[in-house]
């Protein structure tokens, strides 16, 4: 059964889905090559197509991670990304295992998507049954995922242990064209869903009870949210690695919350901060020959520290101007016409 599923994933359906993405990739190579001729940056030299892909993946991560992270952080769900990343690792292990045993040749990122989404739904169902997201169930899911991953890998130890670092810590140079195309599909799903349901997700995030009264199915939006989180985590894993991927969901969002007044502003600022971290991080790690994931997170945390000071400064400037509170006007009610 599952074999049939993976064969299907690996052939026709997947190829048609990814075809336009390969087209976009070609365009992206061309664009960065032009940019190279203008700027002469060695980083984007046409010789290093993998860097072109890595930058594209980084830019996508810089949009989708804070986008989803904003909705998670403000519900005190910052840890769910971490839990899902570790189950995604189990998914990677399943993919490698199947490839090893059945020689399927399916991308481990695809099995990671499947496993992480299932785990996301599981966490959500547990929380529905117990009426709370609790850190205990999250910790259990996290360690189960990681344990399952290590066991599957050790079972098949032969050639597998070699390639595991790229999943744990991420790697710029191993972003294949196929994986970049998969990421573009995930990116489209995530951004599309958030664009469509922004209001609903905002309402549920800010005030769950009022959202329920206003007729929204809080349960369903929560399920959508955790599934999107699973997709982001798997997408971002290629560069960030399992262990650090959750940082991109949390750190830029926490920074944006320091300096923003409105929700829209905080979304925008968190994306800008994340892009800054990703691009600086990729650049530094390229020239300094360090692991990209780690550098990106360090840069993001550095930016976060700066935003704390900026936020304090803003508060001091704004405090001077307290507006006049108007009176409650009983005569002119909106419903009275």
């Amino acid at each position: 059964m599952t074999t049939a599923l993976f064969v299907a994933l690996q052939t026709g359906l997947l190829d048609t889905l990814l075809a336009p993405m390969y087209g976009f990739l070609e365009f992206w190579y061309w664009l960065l090559t032009q940019l190279y001729y203008v700027t002469g940056l060695e980083l984007i030299s046409p010789q290093y197509k993998f860097m072109h892909r890595a930058i594209l993946v980084g830019l996508c991560i810089g949009v989708m991670a804070p986008l989803i992270g904003t909705f998670l952080v403000h519900r005190q769900l910052a840890l769910i990304g971490d839990a899902l990343a570790h189950t995604a690792f189990a998914g990677v292990a399943v993919g490698l295992f199947l490839n090893g045993v059945l020689s399927l040749g399916v991308s481990p990122y695809l099995t990671a998507v499947v496993v992480a989404v299932i785990a996301a739904l599981l966490i959500e169902l547990i929380s529905e049954a117990t009426d709370a997201y609790n850190d205990v169930s999250m910790a259990i899911v996290l360690s189960t995922g990681f344990a399952l991953g290590t066991v599957l890998i050790s079972l098949n130890a032969g050639g597998l242990a070699v390639g595991i670092n790229q999943y744990l810590f991420g790697n710029l140079s191993t972003v294949s064209a196929e994986n970049a195309a998969i990421l573009l599909v995930l990116f489209a799903i995530i951004v599309g869903t958030v664009a469509l349901t922004r209001n609903q997700l905002l309402y549920v995030t800010f005030d769950e009870t009022a959202a329920a009264v206003s007729g929204l199915s809080v349960t369903w939006y929560n399920r959508v949210m955790v599934m999107l989180t699973a997709l982001v985590v798997v997408g971002a894993m290629q560069i960030m690695g399992v262990i650090l991927v959750a940082a991109m969901l949390v750190v830029p969002v926490a920074g944006a919350a320091q300096v923003s007044r409105s929700f829209n502003e905080s979304l925008l600022v968190s994306v800008v901060l994340a892009q800054l971290a990703v691009l600086l991080g990729i650049g530094v790690s390229y020239y300094g020959e360090a692991t990209a994931g780690g550098v990106i997170v360090l840069v993001a945390v550095g930016i976060y520290v700066v935003t704390i000071f900026v936020g304090k400064l803003q508060a001091r400037v704004r405090e001077d101007t307290a507006p006049e509170l108007g009176s409650i006007d009983a005569g002119d009610t909106p419903g009275s016409d």
Binding site: R75, T205, F206, T209, A210, S214, A256, R261, S262, S266
Partner: peptide
């Protein structure tokens, strides 16, 4: 208000809900 305690959101954005 049962609402989130630290979220950056303006009065107008709340009323728009």
């Amino acid at each position: 208000a049962s609402a989130s305690k630290e979220m950056p959101i303006t009065v107008r954005e709340v009323v728009r809900m």
